[in-house]
């Protein structure tokens, strides 16, 4: 079985401070894999090592291997920008570029990466991306408007469309619904459920309930270590590790019988 992402003894430190300590896990293709754990335990950092966005931080030191579809992305002759196109990212704060229209937000990546040749191709790709992100219907008559006129949830779907236009294979999402209202959150969660048929999705969340709702696999990170990982149902109903057990209990007590919310 080929893994979308696999880490081997991955260590990340900021200066002298070790943030991720020797993590090994395997993320299968075309699933939703949730990374959960208390805030500040390095989940966002870990996620950024998967598309080498961590390179932006000059203090960060990475050792070990991160294999994307079998290739170590931290080896020497790797084209970082190509990786970032293949492994797309959605952020905690919906961040469509404020100075570009809805259309342009999606077009700019395509243009600057020279991924399309003609205006027609560009048009159709933009609309395709919006459709895939379940946003086209809501904005198709105002593609020249600016993102400021969108709600939080819509902005986030625009960001997803921006990423999808790159035709990535993997989507990384860093607490994507943390700053989105409940209705928008529901829309995004449903969208992710759809998207996992075609893309591998890695989702960082600080809300165990969200992980139990939409993920197939879960990894529990605590203080920079991967405490436990496995199929979601098993982790929530029958955690092996005491820490995991304590962490997931937070949601079991909210009345759901089996901890899963199937939509």
């Amino acid at each position: 079985m080929r893994y979308a992402i696999e880490t081997r003894n991955l260590r990340i430190s900021y200066g002298k401070k070790e943030v991720i300590m020797g993590v090994n896990f395997k993320i299968p293709e075309k699933v939703v894999f949730a990374l959960m754990g208390p805030s500040g335990c390095g989940k966002s950092t870990l996620l950024r090592s998967f598309n080498r966005l961590l390179d932006l931080n000059k203090d960060a030191n990475v050792s070990g291997q991160v294999l994307v579809f079998g290739r170590n992305i931290y080896s020497d002759n790797v084209d970082v920008m190509e990786i970032r196109r293949q492994v797309g990212m959605v952020f905690q704060y919906p961040n469509p570029f404020p100075h570009l229209s809805i259309y342009e937000n999606i077009a700019i990546g395509l243009r600057l990466n020279k991924m399309v040749q003609t205006k027609e191709e560009l048009d159709s790709r933009v609309k395709w991306a919006l459709e895939k992100a379940s946003l086209l219907e809501e904005v198709e008559d105002r593609l020249d408007d600016f993102p400021s006129s969108l709600s939080g949830g819509q902005k986030q779907r625009l960001v997803i469309a921006r990423v999808l236009a790159m035709k990535p294979k993997i989507l990384l999402l860093d607490e994507p619904t943390a700053n989105v209202d409940p209705v928008g959150t529901k829309n995004i969660e449903n969208l992710l459920f759809e998207l996992k048929k075609e893309y591998t999705i890695v989702l960082v969340t600080h809300e165990p309930a969200q992980a139990s709702r939409i993920s197939d696999f879960v990894g529990f990170i605590y203080l920079g270590e991967l405490v436990e990982s496995g199929p979601t149902a098993r982790i929530f109903e029958n955690p092996q590790h005491e820490l995991t057990d304590r962490y997931v209990r937070g949601i079991l007590s909210i009345g759901d019988k089996n901890g899963r919310n199937t939509n």
Partner: peptide, 27 residues
């Protein structure tokens, strides 16, 4: 400029030059 726009631009595979001139400076 909020750091997140920088991250977003790089995560789309854009390099330093394009990020600076096409995304950040206009903002």
């Amino acid at each position: 400029i909020p750091y997140t726009y920088r991250e977003a631009s790089f995560s789309l595979g854009l390099n330093c030059f394009k990020t600076a001139f096409r995304i950040l400076v206009p903002i």
